[in-house]
Amino acid sequence: MSVFFLRRILTLVATLVAASLIIFLVLDALPGNAAQMLMGADASPDAVHALTVKLGLDQPLTVRYLLWLKGMAVGDLGNSYVYGTPVAGLIAERLVLTIPLAIMSMLITVVLALAAGIYTAANHNKLGDVGVMSLTQVGIALPNFWFAILLILLFSVKLQLLSAGGFAGWDDGIWTGIRSLLLPAISLAVVQAAILARVTRSAMLEVLREDFVRTARAKGLGKREVLWRHVLRNAMIPVMTVMGLQFANLLAGTIVIENVFYLPGLGRLIFQSIANRDLIVVRNCVMLLAAMVVIVNFVVDVLYAFIDPRIKVSNL
């Protein structure tokens, strides 16, 4: 276990450092002087210089990069160029929305996908299978933000059941908060679930052809029992891989969906910051999103070892 674990952790750290380096180069080194960008082309050189010093942009690139790394380690991400408040606080405020949204939609995705995948695999080539698979084919083709708009049209405009956007916050109770995140989460989840359902189905069908399935049947297990006890766990490896990759899409999706529903989450923060040229906020937000993707995929890798006894000690 330890060798496996150690290698994975080293890869994780290396990936995070590489990500931070690229983000830093693109968002800090490439634009030249952020102070100039903030103040506009016609600002007086003195004022620009003053701001440059104030923001610490007069220090060499390597120093700034290392300071940023150190800051990330201790949780001090610097101050917003525009608001002057700590970036960490700005982000934390928004994560209160974005993280529950991501978790909700991932949960809906997994439940929908596993249900559809297991159902279709159990009814391979029957009417239900063909029907659900056609639905997923359509689901994959839907842009999630359009699906979100359609949901708004149905539930807010026509049925007037849910609000078309905005976030009530968590102060009025968890249910009020969840209610305002429900449509966004569903619109994110449905498209992802369509993909994951297809992956689940083909992984299950693949496993169903294995010899040990016949062995299990020969022991007297019914078809359903075999599916649940023997097939599902073996089929989880490819399903989890795709789930990990989907998490990246999901985070990217939250950025889009938050804009559809006017939700004050991380995605909205990024857009405001781009508009405000608040590059330090953009840089930290992008880093956070990339880190979440990398860490989730790391967790998936480690989970393999828990699911598949063959991976545990040996290789990798």
Binding site: D211, F212, R217, A218, L221, I307
Partner: peptide, 19 residues
């Protein structure tokens, strides 16, 4: 099956569930 009639298969390498 497995109770009154049992069966042994050809491929021991794949007849057992690896998980």
């Amino acid at each position: 099956r497995g109770n009154r009639i049992s069966m042994i298969f050809q491929e021991p390498m794949t007849a057992l569930n690896p998980m």
